[in-house]
C-alpha cells in the first residue's frame, strides 16, 4: 500500500494511533461524556510526563538509543524528593530543593552509567534495562534502611523504613500545576508545569545548537566522522548520558508534584517504558529524535491513556485501558526496534 507523501512522512503507526484517539474522542462525544474534563486531564498528564520523555532525547541524539536506564535518573530525583520531604520544605522551594538534589546526584550517577555504556558499546539498550532493574532493587533496600526519621515518611508501626507511597498533600502537591493555572473554554490548563516543561524543552533545543550539543549529534551520526573532526565520541556519549539522567531526575520531581505522591521501591522499575513509547509514537527512531517528537508523542500517548479508561468502561462495561496501554506501549517499542538501521 502506498500512501501519499505527506501521510507517509507522518508515519503509519502515528497515523493509526491518531485515528484511534479520534475514535475515542468521537465515542466520548457521542456518549455525552465530560469532554472538557477529558481534554484537561490529557493536558495535565502531558505536563506531568513531558520531562521524562524529554530525558530520552539526549540519549537518542548521543547515539545511545532508547535510554532504558532512565530509572537511574528517576531514583536520583526520588532521593532528592525524599530528602526535601524529610527536611520539611514546603511549596515551590520544596520542589526546587528536590530537583536540585536530584540533579546533583544525577551528574555522578550519569557519569558512571555513561562509563559503563562506553564499555558495553552496541548493547546500550540491554545494559540500560538491566542496570535500571538492578538499581531499583538495590534502592529498595536503601529505602528500607535509610536513616529518615520524619514520622510522615516512615512506616507508622516500627518507625523504620520509608513507606511505599508518600503523599505530598499540603507539602507541594500540584504546586506547579496550580501556579499560573488558567481556564480556556472550560478547560483547565496547569500553566506552571507546562512552563517548566516548555522551558526545559527550549533549553534542550538550545543545547543541541551549542558546540557541545553539535559534537554530540555529530558523533551519533558517524563515529568515524567525529573522530576525523577531532571529537572524542566516548566523551560525547558520556555527556549525553549525564544529560539524560539529569533530565530524568528533574522529570520525576515534576511528575511527583503533579501526581501528588512520591512512589518508592519498585515504582521506577517500569517507568522508562511509557516514556519510550511516547517519544516513539511522536515519530522518533532509535537513532534520531527532535523536540517535536517529544511533544507530539507525549500528547498522543497520554491522551489515549486518559480517554481510553472512561470511554471503554462506558461502552463495554469493563476496563481495557490497561490492556490497550500495554499493547500500544510495548508494540511501539517493538516496532521501533525492527526499524533499527533502516531509518
Amino acid at each position: 500500500m502506498r500512501l501519499p507523501g505527506t501521510l507517509r512522512e507522518f508515519g503509519i503507526p502515528r497515523l493509526l494511533i491518531a485515528v484511534f484517539l479520534a475514535v475515542l474522542f468521537g465515542v466520548a462525544v457521542a456518549t455525552h461524556m465530560d469532554l472538557r474534563g477529558l481534554i484537561s486531564d490529557s493536558i495535565v498528564r502531558v505536563g506531568r510526563n513531558g520531562i521524562l520523555v524529554l530525558a530520552l532525547l539526549p540519549a537518542i541524539q548521543g547515539g545511545l538509543g532508547l535510554n532504558f536506564g532512565l530509572p537511574l535518573g528517576i531514583i536520583c530525583g526520588l532521593v532528592g524528593a525524599v530528602i526535601s520531604l524529610n527536611a520539611g520544605v514546603h511549596g515551590i522551594w520544596g520542589v526546587a530543593m528536590a530537583a536540585g538534589i536530584g540533579v546533583a546526584l544525577a551528574v555522578p550517577v550519569g557519569m558512571g552509567y555513561g562509563w559503563l555504556l562506553n564499555r558495553t558499546r552496541g548493547q546500550e539498550m540491554m545494559v540500560g534495562t538491566y542496570l535500571g532493574f538492578a538499581m531499583v532493587s538495590m534502592m529498595s533496600v536503601f529505602w528500607l534502611l535509610a536513616p529518615f526519621k520524619n514520622p510522615t515518611l516512615v512506616w507508622a508501626i516500627g518507625g523504620r523504613g520509608l513507606r511505599t507511597t508518600l503523599s505530598l498533600g499540603g507539602i507541594y502537591d500540584k504546586v506547579l500545576d496550580r501556579w499560573l493555572e488558567f481556564t480556556v473554554a472550560g478547560v483547565r490548563i496547569p500553566g506552571g508545569t507546562l512552563v517548566v516543561f516548555g522551558g526545559l524543552s527550549f533549553l534542550t533545543w538550545l543545547f543541541f545548537r551549542t558546540r557541545m550539543g553539535i559534537s554530540i549529534a555529530a558523533a551519533r551520526s558517524s563515529t568515524r566522522f567525529a573522530r576525523a573532526a577531532g571529537i572524542s565520541d566516548e566523551r560525547t556519549r558520556l555527556q549525553a548520558t549525564v544529560l539524560s539522567t539529569v533530565l530524568g531526575a528533574i522529570g520525576i520531581v515534576i511528575f511527583s508534584q503533579s501526581y501528588g505522591f512520591v512512589q518508592l521501591y519498585t515504582a521506577p522499575l517500569l517507568m522508562a517504558f511509557p516514556a519510550i513509547a511516547c517519544i516513539l509514537i511522536g515519530g522518533a527512531t532509535v537513532t534520531r529524535a527532535t523536540i517535536g517528537h517529544v511533544i507530539v508523542g507525549t500528547l498522543l500517548f497520554q491522551s489515549i491513556l486518559t480517554v481510553a479508561l472512561p470511554v471503554t468502561s462506558q461502552v463495554i462495561q469493563g476496563d481495557i485501558s490497561e490492556t490497550a496501554r500495554l499493547i500500544i506501549q510495548n508494540g511501539m517499542i517493538l516496532y521501533a526496534l525492527t526499524r533499527v538501521g533502516r531509518a
Partner: peptide
C-alpha cells in the same frame, strides 16, 4: 563514512570541522 554526515545539512557539513577544531 568519514567525510560526511549524510543526514545533516550542507551548511553544517561545511562548517563542522572548523566549528569543532
Amino acid at each position: 563514512g568519514v567525510g560526511l554526515l549524510p543526514e545533516e545539512s550542507v551548511e553544517l557539513n561545511i562548517a563542522l570541522s572548523a566549528l569543532e577544531a
